[in-house]
């Protein structure tokens, strides 16, 4: 062995270009590959699943219908009856993030939601969309959103900046939540896996036996990470719905 194994917890998030010289010239990275794969999987699920359009659905069609109804229900419950209009957006967002999180769990794959640039872009998209929806539906009355109803007028100089800051913090918290959860999970995996290597390199056979403990922790973490992948995609989608609800209804 040339060098003793070390824990390089953040190396897994490094971007490399894919697709050889073509990818290098346009900066097509491993992250982009998984994004395309994630979008393609979603399209394939819907296109292949709904090809038969059977009255009694088969397995794949059931899955596609279940996905549809899950998001349609989320939109209708959270945004209200108008929520159907935003269904395509929320559906795409949820499944893009979900497939991204899940694909990121496979070895040699890349979790693109572990990059704050990606999650921030998604969150800013949600933020801008909710502002556009609010202004197109309510016009300038949108700005009354920043003054809580029933509050004394004298407090306006304090309350309005606070409300505006609170509003501006939405895309920040939305993007940090997803990014931090995915990064934390992957770093924990890497740390425990690296610990196994260090143990075996340092203590030989005894270390190899002791390495069963970090291995067991990693096995538990797989289940935990699956949960986080679903939960964070769900949280992102439901918060998008909440922001759209605020945009549609104001207050």
């Amino acid at each position: 062995m040339a060098a003793p194994p070390t824990i390089d917890a953040l190396g897994q998030f490094r971007l490399t270009t894919a697709l050889g010289p073509v990818g290098r010239s346009v900066n097509f990275t491993n992250s982009n590959v998984i994004m395309v794969l994630s979008a393609a999987l979603l399209l394939a699920l819907l296109a292949v699943g709904m090809r038969r359009r059977a009255v009694v659905p088969g397995r794949l069609q059931s899955l596609a219908e279940l996905c549809y109804e899950f998001i349609a229900g989320m939109c209708a419950d959270t945004i209200g009856p108008e929520g159907r209009r935003y269904f395509p957006f929320v559906f795409t967002l949820f499944f893009f993030i979900l497939f991204g999180n899940l694909l990121g769990l496979f070895p040699y794959f890349f979790a693109f939601t572990s990059h704050i640039a990606v999650t921030a872009a998604l969150a800013v998209m949600v933020f801008v969309l909710s502002i556009i929806v609010a202004i197109s539906l309510h016009g300038l009355r949108f700005f009354t959103y920043f003054f809580p109803q029933g509050a004394p007028k004298a407090l306006a100089p304090v309350l309005i900046p606070i409300e505006i800051l609170s509003y501006l913090s939405r895309p920040v918290s939305l993007s940090i939540r997803l990014f931090a959860n995915i990064v934390a999970g992957h770093v924990m995996w890497e740390v425990f896996a690296g610990f196994m290597l260090i143990l075996t390199a340092a203590l030989g056979i005894a270390g190899g036996i002791a390495a069963v403990l970090p291995l067991a922790i990693n096995v538990v973490l797989v289940g935990f990470e699956l949960l986080v992948a679903f939960l964070q995609a769900y949280v992102f989608a439901i918060l998008t719905c909440l922001y759209l609800h605020d945009a549609v209804h104001l207050h």
């Binding site: 800051l165 609170s166 501006l168 913090s169 939405r170 920040v172 918290s173 940090i176 939540r177 931090a180």
Partner: peptide
């Protein structure tokens, strides 16, 4: 925690 820190960071 995220909500608190995000608003503080923006401010």
């Amino acid at each position: 925690g995220v909500e608190l820190v995000a608003a503080l960071a923006v401010g």
